Computed example of a mutant assay.
Amino acid sequence: MNKILTYLTELEQNNNRDWFHAHKPEYQGACRAFEELLQVLMLELKKFDDCIPVVEPKELTFKLMRDTRFSHDKSPYNPAFRAHIAPRGKLPVPVGYYLMIKPGGRSFLGGGLFADMFKDATAMVREYIAAHGDEWQEIITAPAFTDRFTVGGTALKNVPRGYDAAHPQAAYLKNKSWYLEFPVSDEQCLAADFIPFAASVFEAMQPFNAFLNRALEGFEMPTRS
């Protein structure tokens, strides 16, 4: 982890292509360290979530390169190592466990549905929450949940048409995405028990993820034309 954070800190301070290519060995070493971490973490997640497959860690990671075409910030790299460990690898659906390592106390452990551009997925989750409101309420009010998480997500101003504005879960029916973020300090990242600590946080997310995945059963990711 020290190798990962050191590299990312230096990349943030030298966010240009010349520096990146001149320090390719450091990048490769940090990538190997991150993939080794993911390998161990994946096995820990399987202990409480048997939907998690064992795959090559590099299949779960996201690139550092940024798409700057429509951004005022033209920095070519995002100084963060990110991965999504889920039933179908890093695809956003089915939902899984998201890890972002970013120096300066900006790391976090995440879960749920972050993507809000899939209208069918949003509709499926809304329908399921509307029909299983008691189960949803039980999950998000459990002490193991409330001690760590608050449900986030982009949301409409009003309950969408077709749903009861007086529904007990009306606040969540407004959402277009439903996710969790647990912040992690640099000190926590560097601690010797980071992996069991992260696994314990992810285990507390598991009922939330499982609910969303039951809602999303049958959803197919759109194919690129």
Rank of each mutant, 00 (worst) to 15 (best):
214 R>L: 10
197 F>C: 00
175 N>W: 05
176 K>R: 15
32 R>Q: 15
153 G>S: 07
144 A>L: 08
36 E>N: 06
1 M>E: 13
76 P>Y: 07
189 C>H: 10
93 V>L: 11
160 P>K: 08
8 L>H: 11
102 K>D: 02
41 L>C: 03
49 D>M: 00
50 D>Q: 15
215 A>E: 01
90 K>S: 08
133 G>A: 13
96 G>P: 11
172 Y>T: 03
20 F>H: 07
177 S>G: 12
89 G>K: 05
175 N>K: 15
73 D>F: 13
207 P>Q: 13
82 R>N: 02
225 S>V: 01
216 L>M: 08
76 P>V: 06
205 M>V: 01
150 T>S: 12
108 F>Q: 04
128 Y>Q: 04
58 K>V: 03
32 R>P: 00
129 I>Q: 04
225 S>G: 14
144 A>F: 08
167 H>N: 11
210 A>L: 10
97 Y>W: 04
74 K>F: 04
139 I>A: 08
93 V>F: 09
141 T>G: 12
211 F>Y: 07
8 L>Q: 12
48 F>E: 13
120 D>N: 12
34 F>M: 00
63 K>W: 04
88 R>T: 05
48 F>A: 10
75 S>T: 09
155 A>D: 01
120 D>F: 03
42 M>W: 02
62 F>D: 02
225 S>A: 13
136 W>D: 05
116 D>G: 08
15 N>C: 12
54 V>W: 02
139 I>C: 06
86 A>C: 09
119 K>V: 12
27 Y>M: 09
217 E>I: 00
212 L>V: 08
205 M>A: 14
179 Y>V: 00
185 S>T: 15
14 N>Q: 07
225 S>H: 12
150 T>Q: 12
106 R>G: 03
11 L>T: 09
149 F>L: 06
190 L>Y: 09
12 E>D: 14
130 A>H: 06
223 T>F: 02
202 F>I: 01
196 P>G: 13
49 D>F: 01
35 E>G: 08
48 F>K: 13
36 E>V: 03
138 E>S: 15
167 H>E: 05
161 R>M: 13
219 F>S: 09
212 L>P: 13
92 P>D: 10
99 L>Y: 00
224 R>V: 11
97 Y>P: 03
54 V>S: 06
119 K>A: 13
129 I>F: 03
39 Q>C: 06
132 H>K: 01
222 P>V: 07
33 A>I: 03
201 V>W: 10
159 V>C: 14
18 D>F: 10
198 A>K: 01
22 A>R: 14
158 N>E: 11
132 H>Y: 04
61 T>R: 10
4 I>Q: 09
3 K>I: 15
140 I>P: 04
84 H>C: 00
103 P>S: 12
170 A>W: 13
190 L>A: 14
117 M>T: 11
152 G>C: 13
39 Q>N: 12
152 G>T: 05
34 F>W: 00
202 F>C: 03
160 P>D: 07
90 K>N: 14
